[in-house]
Design a protein around this nucleic acid. Structure first.
Length: 769
RNA sequence: GGGCGAGUAGCUCAAUUGGAUAGAGCACCGGCCUUCUAAGCCGGGGGUUACAGGUUCGAUCCCUGUCUCGCCUACCA
């Protein structure tokens, strides 16, 4: 499991827990969880009392058909051999014992042996629904179980790093997947009650920025004033093709090509120019560095605006320039040497370098320990930043791989400090991550950088005397108890190295709470590539997808995609809502476009490559964001037409039930006018309520598996269930008062759930569609 | 060579982490707007879960081997 944070009960596994089960009288999803726990505890007690058997976990599932019950226990299968009895017989015996222990008064209506040996459990639907319908149940979402409550009481913070686009070109679809996954992770962590800081790491002194600077200064021979003018003209997102980040997108591609042109001498000269520029930028305090700062800052602002369109915001932007100039590395270097993680290589190809044994190498204890304790995390991947793929780099050098010699130095070791004394990317990242966990002993200075309607985003700064640098009063960043790095899977190796270093330094706690939230890249389908005007090699046409390449300028820009989506949704809205005002229609179209895009990026599990295609992304039918949004709008329209609020509908059902106080205790006594009791037979309505009850379980599962797609799927299924219900039952014309009460309350629950779940995914429900 | 990931319906993807008849969407075929919005609903065809063994009461899932594909494996960042 990638998440090693506050350990929360996940899914249906129930390890033994000390103490009493929660009060089953509590509300909504809480009641559902309490019933689950009460059930597993009782099974445990019966196994112990009857056969002296202790199982480490009691598996709780859902029957394949809701009509069979709410829970299914496969425990009899596991007991069959030990008890030398047929599973079915054991199930029958257990069901009987369970029925004696858990009565309708507890909320359990029946236990039935079924299939080859399952025990199906029926709950009191009326009671569960009443708990869900009760007001205040809402706060349940932000106040999960006792463990996370105590977690937030101690104010331990989680730090999520995402986006981290190199500030040298416009954002593209791949960056959108990162930012949307990261932002959704932030939302669901907050929904679970955690305190979360959002950081966007800015590599403003890297080779990618240097390339664009080479382009401006040497390829185009621009002066700083001319570049400033381009920035001024292209810093409005509405500048479109003049946009500065778009301009740099093209320039970056041209420079990358320029490096490969000319004869060998010329190429060497250009490459040398490249590294001179890079070093000047790293060093700072010179004209080149000043230009680079202007350029990267301008592009950064445009990235923030792009992401803001999607409802994505940040709290802090740590920059590599400050990591360099505030000497984070010097401090980290001392710590690494002192702990023995780094050693000076004196022979072999890495002679003269400070190196670290690579993560996953079997010769180290640390790595084998990690394999056993955190192996899953490594496999599931950790965070990642932008990284040029090998094929992107024009000057790829084939590593010299001679036959390994056991007596030779560790040729596979990771170089952290080069023989010329400069530090590598991983080295700087180790320093940065020591800071993240508050283990470095050095801090950034901070200043305000970007204002959102509800908060300010800060940026790292030098701790200068100048009053424009470093503001004295700033929020505290860093020193997190746990971190998530949203970085694509290609960086799992460097990420593993950082974790390895932390562990090697004895920061086991930090290493255990370091999650590389990894995901596969977004590529383009061959058809999409051709649509964009790229000519493909024969072999590429038959591939399932083609990798995007910033260096080739090959990809779909984020704002272009958003514009295209908005244009498509706007056309639909114009046709469907002709009476609404221009601004209203634009607002609705924007909300739908964002819903489509965010859902599209979230519906795939992290491990699958998204082969991007406009046809799929611009689809608004089936498993899409707009489908779910439309469902919520339908539910809302019912209340508009009915002239009551969803809250009133729920209240009506509860007060109706109040006139039937025996209903919960004696569900057999169904009277025709008892709305809640009707649920007992309503197998076409019950799925909506049951799904509402499972909300928190799904949230917890999404967090523990670090898989937002789980929630996307959950809300889609709820939408399907509601649409089914909507089609089958005509609510406003229902004549039976109790039945109408139930139908309205069901619509209210569905609307509440859809709205809440979409909010967790960063999707709004439009006024109309 | 080593590490990681993937292989499931024509296509794109799921599968409660070992459970009941492997499910959705798209595409295709056929139905449903005089009723709360058809961005919707219902029905249909579609599967040797890459292959071969193994463990298990039970395997898409775990183990071994094989095949195919991708990524990573730099004194780049």
């Amino acid at each position: 499991m990638p998440l090693k944070l506050p350990r929360q009960p996940t899914r249906t596994r129930h390890p033994p827990r000390p103490g009493k089960p929660e009060n089953p009288q509590s509300r909504g999803p809480t009641l559902y969880r309490a019933l689950q726990q009460q059930l597993t505890e009782t099974v445990r007690a019966i196994l112990d009392a009857s056969w002296h058997i202790q199982l480490t976990e009691i598996v709780l599932e859902q029957p394949p058909d809701l009509a069979l019950g709410e829970f299914a226990l496969p425990v009899a299968f596991e007991l069959a051999r030990r008890l030398r009895k047929a599973p079915r017989q054991i199930a029958a015996e257990l069901a009987e014992k369970l029925a004696a222990a858990l009565t309708p008064a507890d909320g359990f209506l029946a236990f039935e042996a079924a299939g080859a040996g399952y025990i199906n459990v029926r709950l009191d639907r009326a009671r569960l629904a009443a708990a869900l319908a009760a007001p205040v149940a809402e706060s349940d979402a932000t106040r999960p179980d006792s463990q996370s409550r105590s977690q937030s009481r101690t104010q331990s913070r989680i730090l999520v790093e995402h986006t981290s686009i190199n500030p040298n070109k416009a954002a593209h679809v791949g960056h959108l997947r990162n930012a949307i996954l990261g932002d959704t992770l932030v939302r669901i962590l907050r929904a679970a009650g955690h305190l979360v800081d959002v950081q966007n790491y800015i590599d403003n002194t890297g080779v990618q920025v240097a390339d664009v600077i080479v382009g401006f200064l040497h390829l185009e021979g621009k002066t700083r004033a001319e570049i400033d003018a381009l920035i001024a003209a292209g810093s409005s997102p509405s500048a479109r093709e003049d946009r500065f980040d778009y301009l740099c997108w093209n320039l970056y591609a041209r420079v990358s090509h320029w490096y490969t042109e000319g004869d060998a001498d010329e190429q060497a000269r250009r490459k040398s120019l490249r590294y001179q520029t890079l070093h000047a930028i790293e060093q700072g305090g010179n004209e080149t560095a000043l230009v680079a700062d202007r350029v990267s800052t301008a592009i950064l602002r445009l990235h923030l605006v792009t992401m803001q369109r999607l409802g994505i915001t940040y709290d802090f932007l740590p920059r590599e320039s400050e990591i360099l100039h505030l000497h984070f590395w010097d401090r980290a270097f001392e710590l690494l040497k002192a702990s023995g993680v780094l050693y000076h290589e004196t022979s072999g190809k890495n002679s003269g370098c400070w190196v670290m044994t690579r993560a996953g190498t079997s010769s180290t204890e640390a790595s084998s320990a990690e394999d056993s304790s955190a192996g899953n995390a490594a496999a599931d991947g950790e965070p990642a930043r932008e990284q040029p793929s090998a094929s992107d780099l024009p000057d790829t050098a084939a590593p010299d791989r001679s036959a390994p010699d056991p007596s030779a130095p560790d040729e596979d070791a990771k170089v952290i400090v080069r023989s010329n004394g400069t530090v590598t990317y991983v080295g700087k990242d180790i320093a940065y991550h020591l800071w993240k966990f508050g283990l470095l002993g050095v801090d950034f200075a901070y200043r305000r950088f970007f204002d959102y309607p509800d908060h300010t985003c800060w940026i790292s700064s030098m701790d200068g005397e100048s009053n424009t640098e470093g503001e004295a009063s700033h929020p505290r960043f860093g020193g997190a108890a746990a971190i998530y790095n949203v970085i694509d899977s290609r960086q799992s190796d460097p990420q593993a190295n950082v974790i390895q270093a932390l562990r090697g330094m004895g920061h086991t706690e930090a290493a255990d709470h370091y999650t590389h939230f990894s995901y596969e890249m977004v590529a383009l389908t061959p058809r999409c590539a051709q649509e964009l005007g790229y000519t493909l090699a024969e072999e590429d046409r038959s591939r399932p997808w083609i990798e995007v390449s910033g260096r080739k300028g090959f990809g779909v820009k984020a704002d272009d995609l958003l514009d295209k989506l908005t244009a498509a949704t706007r056309a639909e809205v114009d046709a469907r809502q002709p009476d609404r005002s221009e601004s209203e229609r634009q607002r609705i179209a924007t909300q739908i476009a964002i819903g489509a895009l965010r859902y599209f990026m979230l519906k795939f599990t992290r491990g699958s490559v998204i082969a991007f295609d406009f046809r799929d992304a611009l689809s608004f039918e089936g498993e899409t964001g707009p489908y779910v949004q439309y469902t919520a709008v339908r539910a809302r329209n019912i209340f508009r037409k009915a002239g009551i609020t969803p809250e009133a509908a729920l209240e009506a059902m509860l007060s109706n039930a109040a006139t039937h106080p025996d209903a919960a205790a004696q569900p057999d006594a169904v009277t025709p006018d008892n709305a809640l009791a009707l649920l007992a037979e309503a197998n076409d309505i019950w799925p909506i309520w049951l799904r509402a009850a499972r909300r928190h379980q799904t949230l917890t599962s999404a967090i523990s598996t670090a898989e937002p797609a789980t929630l996307a799927r959950h809300v889609f299924q709820l939408a399907q269930e509601f649409n089914n219900f909507y089609h089958k039952h005509h609510i406003l014309t229902e004549e039976d008062p109790a039945r109408k009460t139930l139908l309205l309350a069901t619509a209210a629950i569905a609307l509440r759930e859809l709205t809440q779940l979409l909010d967790w995914l960063g999707v709004e429900v439009p006024e109309a569609m």
